[in-house]
């Protein structure tokens, strides 16, 4: 399996007044194709900071980072977006669907940014995969939380990304819905997609191929789970 993300000595410091906040303080991580990695840890441990760096939404203060073969350390936003486009798909805790667009329009939106025409057949396939065929013409406020998260996953998959980044994707869902979303992720990883998930839920962590636990911006535990064996 190819390595899609390779990070060495990754640091992200912030200035807060006269104080320097070490949100991430020297993290080494690599993620391969088809691998599902869970990032665990309490609030403020650096999970979101790590995932933002690995998904090129933010740039590290120090360290090296290669995403899909491209070195991204030191790049500004205009260059980072070029790395993200067509490579990374995103799923957010609060879904972040555009409220004025239907499910179909929401999931086709990334194609507009990439300048690609939507393929109705492909859209139908993705909707079927996430179980939203009968909700295609609905607006987000007509969907349940689980359906909204499925729509967000469909939106991320629309561009056929190589890496799927999910920040607390089950955080706003009940246990049963959260489990169904996790099962969907496992199916996607089985098809070769690299998936990085942050979660508070240790049981979900055990479902991933690998679990990384952060505390105070450092990796305190990294283990391969039974799911990977």
């Amino acid at each position: 399996m190819n390595t899609l993300i390779e990070a060495r000595g990754l640091k992200r410091y912030y200035r807060r007044g006269s104080e320097t906040v070490k949100a991430l303080d020297g993290v080494d991580v690599s993620i391969r194709e088809g691998e599902m990695v869970a990032v665990l840890g309490p609030s403020g441990s650096g999970k979101t900071t790590l995932i933002n760096l690995l998904s090129c939404l933010d740039a590290p203060t120090e360290g090296t980072l290669t995403v899909a073969g491209k070195s991204v350390a030191g790049l500004d936003e205009d260059r980072l977006v070029e790395v993200r486009r067509g490579v990374l798909g995103f799923v957010f805790q609060r879904f972040h669907l555009l409220p004025t667009l239907t499910v179909t329009e929401n999931i086709e939106l990334p194609l507009t940014f990439l300048g690609r025409a939507p393929d109705p057949k492909r859209t139908q396939e993705i909707l079927a995969m996430v179980g939203l065929t009968d909700r295609a013409a609905h607006l987000p406020n007509e969907l349940s939380g689980g359906q909204m998260q499925r729509a967000a996953i469909a939106r991320a998959l629309m561009i056929e990304p190589r890496i799927l980044v999910a920040d607390e994707p089950t955080g706003n869902l009940d246990k049963k819905t959260g489990e169904s979303i996790f099962r969907l992720f496992k199916q996607l990883a089985a098809k070769g997609l690299a998936i990085i998930i942050t979660t508070h839920n240790a049981s979900f962590g055990r479902e991933a191929d690998r679990a990384i636990t952060l505390e105070d911006g450092r990796i305190v535990k990294e283990e391969r789970t039974d799911a990977a064996k």
Binding site: P110, F113, R155
Partner: peptide
């Protein structure tokens, strides 16, 4: 979110 999804500054 639109930027995360691939929208450039110009978009």
């Amino acid at each position: 979110v639109m930027k995360a999804l691939g929208a450039r500054r110009g978009d």
